[in-house]
Design a protein around this nucleic acid. Sequence first.
DNA 1: CGTCGTCTTGAAACTTCTCAAACCAAGTGG
DNA 2: CCACTTGGTTTGAGAAGTTTCAAGACGACG
Lengths: 249, 249
Amino acid sequence: MSNLNVSKVSTIYQPVTCENCNLDNLCIPKGLDRQEIGALALLVSRDNIRQKGEAIYHSGSPFRGMVALRSGSAKLVSLDQNGNELVVAFMLPGEIIGFDGVATQLHTCSAVALETVNYCHLPAHKIEQLTINTPNLSHLLLQRSCNELDSQVQMILLSRRSAEERVASFILNISERLRVRGYSELEFRLSMSREEIGNHLGIAHETVSRIIHLFQSRKLIEVKSKQFKIIDKKELFNFYTTYSLNSLK
Amino acid sequence: MSNLNVSKVSTIYQPVTCENCNLDNLCIPKGLDRQEIGALALLVSRDNIRQKGEAIYHSGSPFRGMVALRSGSAKLVSLDQNGNELVVAFMLPGEIIGFDGVATQLHTCSAVALETVNYCHLPAHKIEQLTINTPNLSHLLLQRSCNELDSQVQMILLSRRSAEERVASFILNISERLRVRGYSELEFRLSMSREEIGNHLGIAHETVSRIIHLFQSRKLIEVKSKQFKIIDKKELFNFYTTYSLNSLK
DNA sequence: CGTCGTCTTGAAACTTCTCAAACCAAGTGG
DNA sequence: CCACTTGGTTTGAGAAGTTTCAAGACGACG
């Protein structure tokens, strides 16, 4: 049974660096050569911890560098001028955050731990150092930020679809990202609340509940509070454009 | 009266390059030093033309480089798996497009001219050349892409608000971007259709019509087909969170 | 064992959509 | 020059999906 709280890394005998971190093919080093990873490893601060609810950085605070999650998950939260919260994204181990601070050098989002997280930090001034000698790194960061951009466009596309399709897509999206990162794709714990899921998907948390219930009654998933099990992935995928809540009542 | 069709640049006596282009402080060169701009200028292909409805690049096609609009406006369009169109963004002169092709090296959007456009093209392979000698450029591109990312998050925030707020915000957003680029901020032509506006904002084109009508009856704007005039900018801004369509019927 | 926060469920209310029809402006061709 | 076509826009009315409000159930925890 996979659990986002369980770190796959670290032994007590050997200090973890970028060279031997088992997230290397997901994290920043992906796409860099051995020498570049060595240079990167020297500049990274490791083993930073945040407990559930604590912020890794705050909206409005100056950009201090990029952050790579090593274990645990987090949410990116933005505030509009009226104080309404928007859960921009949920981030999983091996994923990079901080791009929301690059354009203006002030963060537009807060990054908040959804459970205990362990992360690496690559300071901003050292990024500039690095990029002079390793053009691969700057290209890599550009690619990653454009990848985030693509994801946000996908989110907007999703926001045009029905509530059920959003929830189905959300479950499948998390599943796929966990799979890529070596966790079980069919059974996992979602550390965020229904409220946070609803906020992220642009639907009321009551609607999230109703649809999770609907999916269970259709034998697509099994859910016990935050623990999810995908039973019929194919049908869950087919839920796209096929059904509607009212037609199934 | 400002019109997006009217190019502010080019004399017939002097060829336009990045050094003397009057978009330099908006376009790619912004933030580069004289020498870097010189290097950039040599690699840019200028005076590319597309007529209304023609694509600058197609969704799915390989990434060939970045594009800077010099005159005219364009839309970025994405397709979901069911063939539904999403107007991701409208782009104005001086703005950079192409980031949708960087992550995967395949464009996820089509860029389509909304009227005759003239644009510059910076080929992909030459970007790599450039970034080795001019780390400023790669940092610049990263900033721009993160800026796009911020904009998309703003769009998602907006998608949580009422139809009127979306339309008000849309008009003010275009107005502000035109102002920054030296055009009239109060009187302008919107080259896109009501259908395209509605698609971009996530509302039916009929709703766009209704709200434009509402704004006119409230003396916030004057509209004659595609020609817009902002009468009461302040009140238009206050429309945020203040009124609702049904309460004004 | 009670309390607090989260989750679930029901029913009414509301916003926006969909469909249908009419309107308008700008061509096009007889 | 006028009827016709075409594409975009406007308007109305009913339908649909989601939210809101309210209340009850559950689960973790002191």
